[in-house]
């Protein structure tokens, strides 16, 4: 049970020494699923609170970065009495291989889950080799 709990808890992004953020907010590492299929690689990231306008997907050389900006919604005049989770931005970076068709990356967000489709470049696609039996 402790293991499950650990996975569910949000992890904050660790900053390199000497690096500071300009925006005063916490930044969390979103949990992801990465699924490789025949024609593409699909990434799912849990980013609750993020919509299509507040998520940025950038590709610089081989680094794919997802960044979700959160504007915390605090109920007016209310006092926080139980705090089990923190609210903040999301950031995670992945290194892509050359096998990705970088011009056709597609991203959608639904119910706080980002879905990124990274199509494989033509040459990296799995080719099925027909096996013929000898008659």
């Amino acid at each position: 049970m402790t293991d499950t709990l650990k996975e569910i808890q949000k992890k904050e992004v660790e900053l390199e020494k000497g690096v500071e953020r300009t925006r005063e907010t916490r930044v969390y590492t979103p949990a992801v699923d990465i699924v490789e299929k025949d024609d593409d690689i699909v990434v799912f990231a849990d980013m609750p609170g993020v919509d299509e306008h507040s998520v940025d997907v950038t590709l610089e050389k081989d680094l794919l970065t997802i960044y979700g900006r959160i504007e915390p919604e605090v109920p007016e005049n209310h006092k926080l009495v139980v705090s089990e989770y923190g609210v903040g931005d999301y950031q995670r970076t992945f290194t892509l291989s050359d096998e990705i068709d970088k011009d056709h990356i597609h991203a959608t967000v639904r119910d706080g889950v980002l879905r990124l489709v990274l199509p494989k470049a033509e040459k990296a696609k799995t080719k099925k080799i027909p096996v013929t039996g000898t008659a």
């Binding site: 949000k10 209310h78 009495v81 139980v82 089990e84």
Partner: peptide, 8 residues
Amino acid sequence: PAVNVWVN
């Protein structure tokens, strides 16, 4: 899920 509770 983890919850936050606010009261007024």
